[in-house]
Structure formats: structure tokens, C-alpha cells
């Protein structure tokens, strides 16, 4: 099975899938958290990664934009190997500047929002466009305000993150990522730190984004969201992809024992 996937992975460097992981391995010291992950995310596809904590979902997500280095296998984003240059038979880690350029294409939303608390909402949004894309303030501001409007926070441009609710902060974080005009969005448990009544407003923004055709990889415990929005659900456990398929198949009719046990505990 892994041989066939590696073959297809080798062929998929062109304008094929948006993200492709082939036999990706990652360890923290002795602890191996990713034990050879094969995954493909097509353009415009919404993929939800589910699984128990410690299964490697978040680590896999962080490998996609090279917040984590990998120890084996390869990760492609938009046809290019992420974080490494192939020279002969060796993959050399890229200089930081080049990794930064690749990350422009990949938006990321964190569990704890990670907004910049010393800047107001608008400044949070235009900081990276100005520093990284060297964009002029007026054009960045115009796009930022339009994005804030689309996440329902047009009136909060001058507010500071501490003055916002968790749900509002996470919507700002999504707008901040979108302000870089990414080709793909990564969500790392975007609603896990929120009060239950605030989860809905964030999920709505994510649904709108999915409907607009954005490629999304979402690590989540929101099974309803996965069922409603995901084109594909990937169940991970203990560093492996155990099972994947449509939400109906994986969540509605799981085949693997571990998937069944996990879903029984969360549903």
C-alpha cells in the first residue's frame, strides 16, 4: 500500500494536489509522533483531521507550513517541497527567508488565536502584508477592512484583542491569515479554547470560507462541523492515518475498531 502511495507522490509535483504528504515522519526525542503519514489534499478541498489527543494531528498540520521540521518523507505544498531543497539524494533544509516566502501562501489559525496584543485589530491584519509583502498601508488597510466586514467585525477595527471575546478574537485571527491572500488555510483546533456559545460564530466564518472554495485543513473535535463541511475526514491515531473517507463514511460508518472507539467517546 505504501509503495503505491509513494509512486503517486513522486508524480504529484506538478499542478496536482494542493498538499501532499508522503511517508512523513517526525519525532520529539525518542517519541515518534508521526510514523509515516501519507495524505493528499486537493485544490478547493476541505479536509478535517480528527483523532484522540496525542495522535499527531496538530503536529502534522504544523509540518505542512514547516513550523515543525520533519525527519523523513516529504511534504509538498502547491507542487513544491515545503521547507527543503532536493540536492542529489539529500533534502537540505531551506534558509529561513525562503521558508518565510513559502509560508505567505499558507494561512494558519491557532487554538489560542495568538493575536498580537499590543496592536489593535486593524494593525494585526496589516502587519504581515506591510512587512512581508511590502504592501502600502492604504491598499492593505482597504483589504483588511473588507475582510473584517466579511467576518462580521467591521466595527472592531480599532479595538485591542483583550477587549474582544474569544470568538471575536478567533474571527480576527482568521481575517489576519486571509489578509496575506493564502492559497490554503490550516486550522489548529480553532474552537477548542472557546466558550460553547461562541463556537458557532467561528464555525460560520469557516463554513463561508469553505463555500468560497478555499482549500482547508482543519484539526477539530467538532464532529458536526466535520460532517457538514468536510469533503473528507481523516482519522489519525498514534502517529498513523487509520482511516479516511467522506464524513458520512468515517463518522457515520467507521470501519476500524479505533475509529469506532474514538467516535463512541466523543459523539
Amino acid at each position: 500500500m505504501s509503495a503505491t502511495i509513494r509512486e503517486s507522490a513522486a508524480a504529484a509535483t506538478g499542478p496536482g494536489p494542493m498538499i501532499k504528504a508522503a511517508a512523513v515522519r517526525k519525532s520529539y526525542g525518542r517519541l515518534e509522533v508521526l510514523k509515516g503519514i501519507d495524505l493528499q489534499v486537493d485544490r478547493g478541498e476541505v479536509v478535517c483531521l480528527i483523532g484522540p489527543s496525542g495522535s499527531g494531528k496538530s503536529t502534522l498540520l504544523r509540518c505542512i507550513n514547516h513550523l515543525e521540521t520533519i525527519e523523513g518523507g516529504r511534504m509538498w505544498v502547491d507542487g513544491a517541497v515545503m521547507g527543503y531543497d532536493l540536492k542529489g539524494t539529500k533534502l537540505h533544509e531551506q534558509p529561513h527567508a525562503k521558508i518565510c516566502r513559502s509560508r505567505v501562501e499558507i494561512g494558519m489559525v491557532f487554538q489560542h488565536f495568538n493575536l498580537f496584543p499590543h496592536m489593535n485589530v486593524l494593525e494585526n491584519l496589516i502587519e504581515a502584508p506591510r512587512l512581508v509583502l511590502k504592501e502600502k498601508r492604504p491598499s492593505a488597510t482597504a483589504r483588511a477592512l473588507a475582510l473584517l466586514d466579511s467576518v462580521g467585525l467591521a466595527d472592531k477595527a480599532k479595538a485591542y484583542p483583550r477587549q474582544l471575546s474569544g470568538g471575536q478574537q478567533q474571527r480576527v485571527a482568521i481575517a489576519r491569515a486571509l489578509c496575506m491572500r493564502p492559497k490554503v488555510m490550516l486550522f489548529d483546533e480553532p474552537t477548542s479554547a472557546l466558550d460553547p456559545e461562541l463556537v458557532g460564530e467561528v464555525l460560520k466564518v469557516m463554513k463561508d470560507l469553505a463555500a468560497s472554495g478555499m482549500t482547508m485543513v482543519v484539526v477539530t473535535h467538532e464532529m458536526k462541523f466535520a460532517r457538514d463541511v468536510a469533503d473528507r475526514v481523516v482519522f489519525m491515531d498514534d502517529g498513523y492515518v487509520v482511516e479516511q473517507g467522506t464524513a458520512q463514511d468515517v463518522i457515520g460508518d467507521p470501519q476500524h475498531e479505533r475509529t469506532k472507539a474514538f467516535l463512541a467517546s466523543v459523539l
Binding site: 513550523l67 505567505v104 494558519m108 495568538n114 493575536l115 502587519e127 512587512l131 512581508v132 491569515a177
Partner: peptide
């Protein structure tokens, strides 16, 4: 650390992250 990570994920380099994100805080 999440501050540096968020800046890194936006493509902001290390020096700019230090100057614009970390030191002011």
C-alpha cells in the same frame, strides 16, 4: 512562544518578529 509562531506562520522573518512583535510586548 505562540506570538513568534503566529508571526512565523505569516511569513514574518525572525529579526522583524523580534523588533515588531516580541520586544514591544
Amino acid at each position: 512562544n505562540g506570538q513568534s509562531e503566529a508571526a512565523g506562520a505569516l511569513g514574518i522573518n525572525r529579526l522583524q518578529t523580534m523588533r515588531r512583535i516580541v520586544l514591544p510586548q
